[in-house]
Design a protein around this nucleic acid. Structure first.
Lengths: 147, 147
DNA sequence: GTCTGTGCAAAGGGTTTGCATTGTC
DNA sequence: GACAATGCAAACCCTTTGCACAGAC
């Protein structure tokens, strides 16, 4: 099982779903491959895409992000800072959590997932069928602690 | 230790912090006492306050919510539906989690907190000083499952 | 050639801010 | 009576939408 889909695979995914594989969409996907930091806002992506394709419109970015989210290529994140952020869905990276630094705003990831027990308990006690979860820790990151 | 502060105590809290205890602020706080459901949006509060004080402005609601959040009277929540929601902070209700139904939008609460171990581990491994956390489960609630 | 995708600009929705007026301390 | 708080409306920010044009199949 591949850890991350290739550009080629994503092209096929789009075409199989009756979407066209345009230069704009290609460039937007490439931004996610190029940028390792993850957690990109629409504006971040817009600026990076415009380095390659200077005429791209912000609306195109939003429309593409929407498609990619629906195809489960991207995950839409909300850290409460007034804008949505997107990260690429990678197999094996399911259910990681986020550390949001309240000082510098940096978001890092925790791989651990100890929520399975809790999920079972909730499903049992509340009759709630869990599809997804979101766990965020807010605090002060190592770098800010040193200041 | 009281489970919930009284109106009187909140009045003193405001005055001690050089804020005035106006009828508007009183009415806004009362909304939280009257409404048991919790998770109120600014608009929800605005409408309920206007039943008592018809001339209140939405801006006043936002400004008051902001003050009460800073005084740790309220907790600002984000369920990703495009608006912030507020719940009153009660002692003993620290760190409860939310179940967000993807069908009907209803938000209910889970009292369990099994995150202490995980928090310690994260603080140790990442040097991240945790101040708060947010855990949300998305899925289908018992009522929607029956439909 | 058809019809999806694009860019632009305008609209939308929640939240914030400026300012003259009101009213609390 | 000073100055914080209010109400109104405009401004803001991110996101969505309408529309005519461009371009992929």
């Amino acid at each position: 099982m591949p850890r991350q889909r290739s550009l080629r695979q994503l092209e096929e995914l789009l075409l199989h779903n009756d979407y066209r594989f345009t230069p704009q969409r290609r460039a937007i996907i490439e931004v996610f491959f190029d940028d390792g930091s993850g957690h990109l806002s629409a504006e971040d992506i817009y600026h990076q895409v415009r380095d390659k394709l200077p005429d791209v419109g912000l609306a195109t970015v939003y429309r593409t992000l929407d498609i990619l989210e629906n195809l489960n290529v991207l995950h839409k994140l909300n850290f409460g800072d007034g804008r949505f952020r997107y990260e690429i869905n990678q197999e094996g990276l399911h259910h990681h959590h986020h550390l949001v630094c309240l000082q510098c705003g940096q978001v890092s990831e925790v791989k651990t997932d100890l929520l399975n027990d809790l999920e079972e308990k909730i499903a049992r006690e509340h009759g709630f069928n869990i599809v997804d979860h979101s766990l965020k820790f807010y605090g002060h990151c190592a770098a800010c602690n040193k200041k």
